[in-house]
Amino acid sequence: MKKIDYGQVMAGKTPSIYTAKTKSRLLLIFGVVLALYLFSTYQTNSTPAELVIGLPNLFALLAKFFPPNFEVLIASSVVAAFSETIQMAIIATTVAAVLCVPLSLLGAQNITTNKYLYGFMRFFLNVLRTIPDIVLALIFVGIFGLGVFPGILALIIFSLGILAKLISETIESVDMNPLEAMQASGAGTIQTIYYGLVPQVLPQFSSLVLYVFEINIRASVVLGLVGAGGVGLVLDQQIRLYNLENAMAIIIGIFVLVVIIEFISNKIREAIV
């Protein structure tokens, strides 16, 4: 088909741009997507009509969250909960950053030349990433009881999956030449990795660790909902007690925290890379 030069298309005079085949295919895809959507909305009782009917109700209920009672944010228990969330994320990110080093080396094809070991590692990391953080938290709460410790464990495992995958991809993209030179001069494996690989991946490594820290802050907020410590626990209590103005203030507090952390980590990232 002739390529259409969009610059030539005049107002009011548009030639048929697509062939009949493309048109019918597009129509089919569109139809399938629409049908699936209608079916999904039917199954979940969330038709647009439902939304329109529910909307006033929704706003009425949301109105109960306002005005937020910001005084709750200076209550010592809430401050402690916020600190706990940050502390959980710091510990979990630090531990995950250390643990991911061997895992990501094993999951990088250019370092782990053993096909089976590499394949197994990749599979393992992918499976790890599919388990939702909340499920991990519930399991650890089941084992260790309520508290921060199961929350931290859940965050470690959850962020380990993400971090190890991203870092092993970074490792796979490095320049292998200097590593070859070091091997040729009789350096051992650990020396080669430390002198040839580490300087090359360090900036991305730091940047990814910061990224995972952001994810962990969000996740640790949520983990509290299932009793794994942090500010989510307080939020859950306030909602259960129907103190919605307090809940809203906490939600806004979480929002501000996430934005601040994101801002700081962006600044650090800019300074590194």
């Binding site: 030449n177 350096a187 051992g188 080669t192």
Partner: peptide, 29 residues
């Protein structure tokens, strides 16, 4: 390998490391 030095077409230096560190890498063996 420690008694055989090798020079490559693409120099094979660690680009992000400084010259001193690159040269000291020759002592790793």
């Amino acid at each position: 390998r420690t008694k055989i030095g090798m020079i490559f077409q693409n120099y094979n230096l660690v680009k992000r490391s400084n010259v001193m560190k690159n040269v000291l890498a020759g002592r790793l063996g």
